[in-house]
Measured scan of single mutants.
Amino acid sequence: MQRVNMIMAESPGLITICLLGYLLSAECTVFLDHENANKILNRPKRYNSGKLEEFVQGNLERECMEEKCSFEEAREVFENTERTTEFWKQYVDGDQCESNPCLNGGSCKDDINSYECWCPFGFEGKNCELDVTCNIKNGRCEQFCKNSADNKVVCSCTEGYRLAENQKSCEPAVPFPCGRVSVSQTSKLTRAETVFPDVDYVNSTEAETILDNITQSTQSFNDFTRVVGGEDAKPGQFPWQVVLNGKVDAFCGGSIVNEKWIVTAAHCVETGVKITVVAGEHNIEETEHTEQKRNVIRIIPHHNYNAAINKYNHDIALLELDEPLVLNSYVTPICIADKEYTNIFLKFGSGYVSGWGRVFHKGRSALVLQYLRVPLVDRATCLRSTKFTIYNNMFCAGFHEGGRDSCQGDSGGPHVTEVEGTSFLTGIISWGEECAMKGKYGIYTKVSRYVNWIKEKTKLT
């Protein structure tokens, strides 16, 4: 034993070699072989497995989906700052455009905790909710729209109204504003409101030439003092309507412009014939205590009207009353817009006519005020429907199939267009061939041609 100890002390290297040989010859039971080890760690190889990531292109799944990435790591994937920024906006807080917040056709661009709407022409605001041009839906104005110097929408209202708090709607500024039905039992019968379409306001006024200088022999019209197929109006439903009495009662109609003036057809009036105007009328054979009678003290036909040349060209006249009318729910003026808007309103496509005229061709006159909704007829169809001249200051309205029309005794009465609950004068009943005849239409004086003249002559002093 002493000898062994001496050998170990003198030859430590020998001992180490012996131990190493023993270990190498022993069977290893701690580690699995290569094949079995792979069965336990069965993990798919990654895209760049075996390579240094710093030297390969980034992978979106590896960089940002398996674990949260930084902007720089995302930049490695896209290799483009702009594309990385677009991805980053949604990656950080989701897609803010998912709810489609942009209105009126706006395009949404996502941002971090926010979004941006790219608005089409005519709109602005956070969600493109603000109209900035009158060309689109009248700028959301209830009545009139004008573009300011910086191309912003400025709404306005006709006389007797003021802008509401929203700067879009119009509200009454006087007790009985024009064009409004205020009798409670008839307010439910107000005709369907007309909503502004998209309009090209630059070209809204037709490029028409008034044929002022045409000389033409007097034409022989049949029954051209021209509501057939209409309905009984309720008291106060058309408070701007008046009836004219002269040699015979209810020979023509008219509309209240203001307390002192009536507008009617020029062919209705004769110099030297006494005319009485009755406002607030409903049943011409009954006294309903809503009527107001006034005498006409002055007749002003349009300066281009000449019955000797043509009885229905420039067929418009103004009547001055001896005493002002007292405005109330049964006696209310009709609204008159400017030339541009009167023309736009007419193009809405349908209007209402009213009167006490004959209820059928050569038949009896109506006792109760009649009204009828009539569609506008395109000019080409209008011209083809008659052998008589249709001037540019006239328009056609009615039904091709016949059966409904204005008729004798309705002449001078109103053709009105309702705009968001307020009625505007767009025409004056003038003439036609018979009444409600198939293929024939009622012919009306186009008020847009005469609004400046009306307003100039009827100013209240």
Results as ranks from 00 to 15, higher is better:
9 A>L: 13
91 Y>R: 08
325 L>F: 11
138 N>I: 04
34 H>W: 08
105 G>R: 03
322 D>S: 06
78 F>N: 15
191 R>M: 14
241 Q>N: 08
360 F>G: 09
376 L>T: 08
259 E>N: 06
194 T>N: 09
197 P>R: 08
281 E>K: 13
159 E>Y: 07
261 W>L: 01
381 T>G: 04
304 N>K: 08
172 P>Y: 05
131 D>T: 07
142 E>Q: 11
212 D>A: 07
40 I>W: 06
264 T>R: 00
100 N>M: 08
158 T>V: 12
326 V>F: 06
217 S>A: 09
54 E>I: 08
400 H>P: 14
213 N>G: 10
398 G>W: 03
56 V>A: 13
434 E>F: 12
232 D>I: 13
2 Q>A: 13
125 G>F: 00
245 N>Y: 14
145 C>L: 02
431 W>M: 12
231 E>D: 09
372 L>I: 15
372 L>M: 10
453 W>T: 00
416 V>L: 05
115 Y>A: 01
393 N>F: 04
8 M>D: 08
122 G>A: 04
240 W>K: 01
238 F>K: 04
140 R>K: 14
30 V>E: 09
133 T>H: 12
402 G>A: 15
402 G>W: 15
425 L>R: 00
131 D>E: 07
407 C>E: 03
265 A>E: 00
310 N>Y: 04
135 N>A: 14
263 V>Y: 01
320 E>I: 00
314 H>F: 07
274 K>T: 10
80 N>A: 10
341 Y>H: 06
277 V>G: 01
142 E>I: 04
343 N>I: 03
109 K>L: 05
65 M>N: 07
334 I>C: 02
322 D>Y: 02
436 A>L: 09
456 E>P: 02
351 G>S: 07
293 K>T: 14
445 T>P: 00
256 I>L: 04
222 N>F: 11
290 T>P: 05
65 M>H: 11
151 N>C: 04
101 P>L: 03
81 T>G: 11
456 E>R: 09
395 F>M: 01
7 I>W: 13
233 A>I: 07
372 L>Q: 14
40 I>V: 13
127 N>F: 06
272 G>P: 12
411 S>G: 12
409 G>K: 13
318 L>Y: 00
285 E>V: 11
34 H>R: 13
148 S>M: 08
129 E>V: 02
301 P>T: 10
345 F>N: 01
44 P>T: 15
2 Q>K: 07
383 L>C: 08
41 L>K: 09
442 G>D: 03
17 I>L: 13
416 V>A: 09
334 I>V: 13
332 T>N: 04
342 T>N: 03
257 V>H: 00
89 K>Q: 12
411 S>A: 11
39 K>F: 07
